[in-house]
Amino acid sequence: MRKSMASNRLQPDVGFNFWMRWSNFQRRYAPYIFISPFFVLFLVFGLYPSLFSLYMSFQSWTPSDGWGRWKFVGLENYTFTFTDPMFWRSFWNTLWLGVFSGVPQHLIAIPLAFVIHMVLSRFKTFVTAVYFLPYITSSVAIALIFNTLFATHNGVINLVIAQLNTWPLLGALLPDQNINWFTSANIKYALAVVVVWQFTGWNTLLYLSAIQAIPKDLYEAAAVDGASRWQQFRYITLPLLRPMMFFAVSLTIIGNMQLFEQPFVLLNGGASTATPGGQTVTMYMYRTAFEWLEMGTAASIAWILFVFIGILTYLNNLAFGRAARGGD
């Protein structure tokens, strides 16, 4: 192209006009062309399926009907889902897991990040990396590993509990017999342990990066005024962490409301007897679509969950958001 421009300079004729026009054209439209792949892909593989699933949620269709033979059923899918006890069970499971696998992540991660920041210097990256390992590991791999660790007879976790049971005080709180984790009543606790183990390191990393961004002289000034470590944490670190809390809690809400892989594997794809007590809404949606082949009903489940996540995000925004944006 450079070459052609050089020759055009010598002969300003039709070619020159063409070059100028091309040059203007590509300069003007370049940014649009550069960003267009995202928008094309989003329209085709993101927005279109979303809208299509909204349409689907008012239709009845199962693959044996043949492609395109949708039947309009109005709100039937929604009324079915809202009166389906299995849906409400999975909804309850999701909420329970959302709280009991979500809250501990932050309750552990914030002090952990503070401790890492305060007591470590040389090994800071190493220690953070260790805590971060589960986050980069496949959820399926993690669920498979914990599947063996939670075994009822001679499972590592039950043996550790049996060991702790011989300790004074602590022993009184623990059951004397092996726990069968794979029952409807117990599977939730196992799932919560897995999720907390997997994502606490990620939150620790987020909070640590926010703590490191707090200016040192704030702590120094507080120390001069006689503030203890605890007071520094309570009155400097915690308030300044609020924007990051908002961000991290938002991610936890969106992630926890969609928990799929961990319950899917620990419940053996739905074949486990513990399925009713552990399956989440997304897993129930998956089974409605691919096991019972009710695509329309599955779409209605997806949209109900979508709206619910939207409401939770909005509430989180009300609780944290204003402070997070600095307009306290």
Binding site: P49, S50, F52, S53, M257, F260, T282, A289, A302
Partner: peptide, 16 residues
């Protein structure tokens, strides 16, 4: 688009 829960598109994505 980061806020759209990914797994909710699973079924229509499969159909597409």
């Amino acid at each position: 688009t980061l806020l759209i829960p990914a797994i909710l598109n699973l079924i229509p994505f499969y159909l597409l």
